[in-house]
Every structure is written in C-alpha cells, then in structure tokens.
Amino acid sequence: MIEIKKMFLEGAELDFLLEIVGRSVIMFILILVILRLSGKKGVRQLTLFEVAIILSLGSAAGDPMFQEELPIIYALVVLFSVILIYKLITWLSTKSTFINKILEGEAMVVVRHGMFDLKHEHDGDFSKMEFFSELRNQSVEHLGQVRMAVLEIDGSMSILFYPDAEIKYGLPLFPDDYQQITIHAAGAPIACMYCGQILENIPQEQSCPRCQRKKWALAIDTKRI
C-alpha cells in the first residue's frame, strides 16, 4: 500500500519549504536576466547550440532551488560563466563559417521547383509529414504553388511562391486531396505521393521515375488565395 503522507511529507521542514519558495523566485529572476543578456527574444529563434545553453542554465539553476547546502552564489557564478561562454562561442562563429556550421547547422532545401528535394530523404530529421504541416500553415495548397521552400536553422520555413500565371500542377497537401488513387481512377495529371513528381499518366511499371515509389494522387493546379 502506497503511503501518500510518507511520500510527500516525511522529513519535510516547514522553514526550509519557505526557503525553497524564496530560492525558486530568486533563481527564476536570475534565469530571466541571463536570457535577456543572451539577446534572444523567442523560442523560434533558438538553434541547437542555444538549446544546449538553455539546458545548462536550467540545470545550474535547479539544484540551488531545493538543496540547502548549495548557496545561490554558486549558481550565480555558473550562470554568468555559461553566458560568457555563449557570448565567446557566438563571437567565434561570426568569424568562422566552419564553427558556425558546426554549432548551428545549415538551412535545408525542402521543395525545389514544385517537388520535394530528395537530397535529404535519408536524413534523420527529414519528415515529410512535418513539412506538409509547415507548408499548410503558410496556406500552401499544393506543391505546384511553390518555387522553393527552405527549412531554416531555427526551424522556420521560408517559401518563394510562383506567380499565379506560372502555377503548375502539384502534389496536394491537405488530407481531403492527398489520397492514393488506382490506375483506373487517373483522369488528370498525377503526382507521386512521396516526391511530388508530376506525370500525365501512371507509367506502365507503376513506379515514379524520380524516387521509385508507387503511390499516386491526383495533382491539382489551384491558384493561391
């Protein structure tokens, strides 16, 4: 039988509980100050390197909140040391393209000329469904509307659109239209459901000549709203 009182209250000291509240408030304020000193304004702007810095700050701030034997000055030294390291490495990355690439990675082309770019198809971070979601969030109905889409190092998506006069048939991105069809159902240009290759008819071998996949959807060429 689990003893709830023992789990939550045994050994607890009221005076130290009040001290924990004070320590938590102080550390929370210190974290806010340190983050302001880092110069970042939002989570969408954080790179992997900066996420590592945030985790380091959180670890340094967490222990003094509830460990009575750790004075807050220790955490303060760690916090300012971490932010100094961050500033130094950030400065070095502005001087060296190589260091910048290691710390922050590179932007990745997701869509090129109305089709998914296949260069990164085996990357661990290549998720077609995530790209579908990001493109839909920017009111992209099908890939034929997109000249180029780039996944930035901060996780945002930058998109260059075709003008209305140049929009072509493309792979639909919304669930109602992103449906697999059979050979006999094809009556218009078709799109490979994996890479977005457009064909007038399903080939005899039923596989996409670009990515060798065998699933097709009806392509659409609607204009952007």
Rank of each mutant, 00 (worst) to 15 (best):
L35N: 11
R36T: 11
L37F: 10
L37N: 03
S38F: 05
S38L: 12
S38Q: 08
G39A: 07
G39P: 08
K40R: 15
K41R: 15
K41C: 09
K41E: 09
G42Q: 07
G42L: 09
G42Y: 11
V43P: 02
V43S: 06
V43K: 00
V43C: 03
R44I: 11
R44P: 02
Q45R: 07
Q45S: 14
Q45T: 14
T47V: 02
T47W: 01
T47F: 04
L48G: 12
F49T: 02
F49S: 02
E50M: 09
E50T: 05
E50C: 04
V51D: 01
A52E: 00
A52W: 05
I54F: 12
L55W: 10
L55A: 13
S56V: 06
S56T: 13
L57N: 01
G58C: 02
S59K: 00
S59Y: 00
A61T: 08
A61G: 15
D63P: 01
P64Y: 06
P64W: 03
F66D: 08
E68L: 08
E69H: 09
I72V: 12
I73Q: 03
I73T: 14
I73K: 06
Y74V: 06
A75C: 07
L76I: 06
V77G: 02
V77D: 01
V82W: 02
L84H: 01
L84G: 07
L84K: 01
L84Q: 02
I85A: 10
Y86E: 08
K87H: 12
K87P: 01
K87A: 03
L88T: 15
I89F: 15
I89R: 03
I89P: 01
S93A: 15
T94M: 14
S96Q: 10
F98N: 06
F98I: 04
I99E: 12
I99T: 09
N100I: 00
I102L: 14
I102P: 03
L103R: 05
L103W: 06
L103G: 11
L103I: 14
G105N: 12
E106A: 00
E106Q: 02
A107M: 09
A107L: 00
V110Q: 09
V110I: 15
V110T: 11
V111W: 04
V111I: 14
V111G: 07
R112F: 13
H113I: 13
M115K: 13
F116W: 04
D117V: 12
L118C: 05
L118R: 07
H120C: 03
H122D: 12
D123P: 00
D123C: 02
D123N: 10
D123S: 08
D125Y: 12
D125K: 12
D125V: 09
D125F: 11
F126I: 05
F126E: 08
S127R: 12
S127K: 14
K128A: 10
K128M: 14
K128C: 03
M129F: 05
E130C: 08
E130W: 00
F131Y: 15
F131K: 04
E134V: 04
L135P: 02
R136S: 09
R136W: 04
N137F: 10
Q138W: 00
S139Y: 06
V140A: 10
E141Y: 06
H142W: 11
H142E: 09
L143D: 07
